[in-house]
Design a binder for these strands. Structure first.
Length: 411
RNA sequence: GCGCCUGUCGUCAAGUGGUCAAGACCUCGGAUUGUGGUUCCGAUAUGCAUGGGUUCGAAUCCCAUCAGGCGCCCCA
């Protein structure tokens, strides 16, 4: 038996209604907020992710689906199934000179991403993200708009009690100062840290801040280290930017908490970073992650452009929402004349009614049983009805049956 | 990639070395040849994730593989 690949999943039945619901809410909420949809290819040049996502990240180092593709002459090019969508959107932004349009340029997307990880609840190898990217505005109003969109979208799905966590990583300059300060103050304790943190110290020292290892936690509790962490290390401009964002959020009544230990893993983030979490998801608790990436467009060869966005895990959203029941049919046609039944079904479907009928001309009791499970009304189309030209319409909720002589009265 | 746990019908499960692998729901058929949602009756795993091994005998013990879950890691 051939089975679905590890970490992949078939979606059908009630779950697919939930997906349609999520997709249509995304469409409504984001498009109302002026985001246009963008669909970028599922695979891109490997180099795009290596440069865009960053080679200090696990995503690039060990989780990419990378293929060598090309002719027998080995003039192969390396392509990768996208592990996230920001790099692809930025590539498209540059390639189509979208920066020449008047800012802001705002996009939303929905689609599959691929990461080779150990599957777990809330974590698959092919998973879907829905997200937005907003280019061209450096002011905190853009940060507020993006966070607002995330919150509004979640609210539209009935998820209004999730916690928003915020932090500012600072800009290029103060981010580095902070990084150096952290390294300096942690240096005496390297030997006591867990193996992961020893690695992090070299590659991405800020990540040590959210290590869950007890020994590392103890080190972070030390006064001189705590002082560095809790101090407002970011520069004046970054601080002003962050304070402005907070004013917006207060004005919008969006609840948030500031988490100085929130450090996101992708290399491109600067200034504002945020996550939206749920306790109901176990260890994969982040439903939404995002932040500002003011340097990325330029780094990938475009003009210097401020930008901010977020991505949400669709499977994680699904886990938080109850499955939707299949919508009921308007009519189920009960008939032993399958030709008349399919003709009537076709006519009603053209009037935008949901209609089914029995394909096997089974006895009426069976057909009605099926009708009662799936439809609001049964149209009984037996020999009498066909001969005399009327419809017997039965309300399947209360059992009342009426005779209708005009097709138009069915609509 | 690491550690721990799990894997019996479409679903939920009983069974933990020795009769034909309980039961419930779903599905299908019948009681009821044109009237459902109640009730009653019947059908449906030579099979216990897959492949090996131990044994007179394995769903039950052992090994491997695959898949899922939890935690780590990472992230959405």
């Amino acid at each position: 038996m051939i089975k679905a690949q590890r970490g992949t999943k078939d979606i059908f039945g009630e779950e697919s209604f939930l997906w349609q619901h999520i997709l249509s809410n995304a469409q409504t909420v984001f498009q109302n907020a002026g985001f246009g949809e963008i669909k970028t290819p599922i695979f891109e040049a490997t180099e795009l992710f290596a440069r865009g996502v960053g080679d200090s990240t696990d995503i690039v180092n060990k989780e990419m689906y990378t293929f060598s593709i090309g002719g027998a002459d080995k003039s192969a090019s390396s392509i990768t199934l996208r592990p996230e969508n920001t790099a692809g959107v930025v590539r498209a932004y540059i390639e189509h000179n979208i920066s020449r349009q008047s800012p802001p340029q705002k996009f939303w997307y929905f689609g599959p991403m691929f990461r080779y990880e150990r599957p777990q609840a809330g974590r698959q190898r092919q998973f879907n993200q829905v997200g937005v990217e907003m280019f061209g505005v450096e002011k905190a109003s853009a940060d507020a708009e993006v966070i607002l969109s995330a919150v509004e979208f979640l609210k539209s799905l009935g998820l209004d009690n999730l916690s928003v966590e915020l932090n500012s990583l600072g800009c290029k300059k103060c981010k580095n100062d902070y990084r150096e300060n952290i390294k300096k103050v942690l240096a005496p304790y390297i030997a006591d840290m867990c193996d992961d943190c020893k690695m992090r110290y070299e590659k991405n020292p800020l990540r040590i801040l959210d290590c869950k290892n007890e020994d590392c936690q103890k080190i972070l509790e030390k006064d001189e280290i705590k002082e560095i962490i809790l101090k407002d290390y970011i520069c004046e401009d970054c601080k002003t930017h962050f304070d402005e964002l907070i004013e917006y959020l207060d004005e919008l009544n969006i609840k948030y908490s500031i988490n100085k230990l929130l450090v996101r893993g992708l290399d491109y983030y600067n200034r504002t970073v945020f996550e939206i979490k749920s306790e109901k998801l176990g260890s994969q608790s982040a439903v939404c992650g995002g932040g500002r990436y003011d340097g990325l467009v330029e780094m990938l060869g475009g003009p210097s452009t401020p930008a901010i966005g977020f991505a949400m895990g669709v499977e994680r959203l699904c886990a938080l929402i109850d499955n939707l029941e299949a919508p009921k049919l308007d009519y189920f046609i009960v008939s032993n004349n399958t030709k008349e039944a399919i003709k009537l079904a076709s006519k009603l479907r053209n009037e935008n009614k949901k209609v089914e009928f029995d394909y096997q001309s089974r006895k009426f009791a069976k057909q009605l049983e099926k009708a009662s499970k799936s439809a609001k009304y049964a149209i009984i189309l037996g020999e009498d009805e066909i001969e005399k030209g009327f419809y017997s319409v039965k309300n399947l909720e209360n059992g009342e049956q009426k005779t209708i002589s005009n097709f138009d009265d069915l609509i």
